[in-house]
């Protein structure tokens, strides 16, 4: 019962993250949505780690948290650079690389 509940929660959290990715215009808002998606994945890994008593699933969740930290650091550095060079935080208005 708890398994099914938590599975539904991870699916809903992932979908909320996808919704945020699709609708947010602010680059920092996009990063927040990505954190939701990564958390949903980590929660799923931990759930199955407990369900099947498997240790490497927890290791995967730990690596997800570590990589999320790296992603947040690099993403926010890019956003800060963007505010200086393009004077905007809106992801739509940054089209320097458009062909």
């Amino acid at each position: 019962m708890t398994t099914r509940l938590l599975l539904a929660v991870t699916c809903a959290l992932f979908s909320l993250g996808v919704y945020g990715m699709l609708t947010r215009r602010n680059a920092i808002g996009l990063l927040l949505a990505v954190e939701l998606i990564l958390n949903a994945a980590a929660l799923n890994f931990v759930l199955f780690s407990r369900l099947f008593a498997h240790i490497h699933a927890q290791v995967f969740a730990l690596f997800i948290i570590a990589l999320a930290a790296c992603e947040a650091v690099v993403g926010l550095a890019i956003v800060l650079n963007l505010t200086r060079s393009a004077r905007t935080v809106c992801a739509d208005e940054v089209d320097l690389l458009r062909g």
């Binding site: 909320l16 609708t23 602010n26 809106c90």
Partner: peptide, 18 residues
């Protein structure tokens, strides 16, 4: 600019995915 865009299609897509 508004804080979000395409709210209805995005809600349909993510709701369907969920």
């Amino acid at each position: 600019a508004p804080a979000s865009r395409g709210t209805l299609p995005a809600a349909l897509v993510s709701g369907g995915l969920c």
